[in-house]
Amino acid sequence: MISNRDSKTGQALFEYLLRLGDDRLVLGHRLSEWCGHAPILEEDIALANIALDCIGQASNFLSLAGKVENKGRNEDDLAYLREAVDFRNVQMVEVPNGDFAHTIARQFLFDVYSYPLLDELQKSADGEIAGIAEKAVKEDRYHLRHSSEWVRRLGDGTGESHDRVQNAFEDLWTYSEELFFTDEVDDILVAAGIAPDLALIKKAWEEMVAKVMKDATLDIPGNDRYMAQGSRNGRHSEHLGHLLAEMQIVHRSYPGVKW
């Protein structure tokens, strides 16, 4: 445990860990909805596997968040007993799955963000974050390979698959800017060497997105549209409340019991 978790850094770190944890918790939850309903058996396995990794990563980040906060909350308290406005995930991960193209496009846009982020976090001045990132980055390498291969396959497959995945990118582009939202949470942690500068991640993201979409014969959507914002501070779409209602129902119905 690093010693520089003074109140200001500690508070920023808690917020930051919620952002890391909630992104992966909500995305993992959405992915797990595919289980048993995927287009081919191999994808039932792959999507379940990625969901499992995401929830595992979320569990680690939220557990650490609880420790940093130091109010006796564990990862389950944070996952199951917070309201939608207290969640810090980006909206991209909470929107419903849509078709397979939509799920893949979302996963790709997130993986291209998450992989370099975790890669940098391995060098975090906070040893515990670095440890979680070290394990998670290996998982994300596979996620990115999986999603980018599918983007190529769908983009350069048939006319129908091309249109579907192009439409999915158009729909999801609205949510892309939020990935790179920064505020004083980032400022404090970047200064402390705990978190990387998201501007650098954004550059890597843009390059990789451009490369894969070009390979896939897809057009990169323009930014002349409504760009969603606010979710890092708790302003979400209406979808998150429904997702949490489902996720939290059993846990909340029997307060304080062991499962």
């Binding site: 918790l25 058996l41 191999e42 199951y80």
Partner: peptide
Amino acid sequence: GNWITRAPTLRRKMGLIAKVQDEAGHGL
């Protein structure tokens, strides 16, 4: 699969996803 999204703890959620994933693997 019907209960994955409602599993009462993260540990249980992971255990259940892993089990259903195994079943897909067995099918394959």
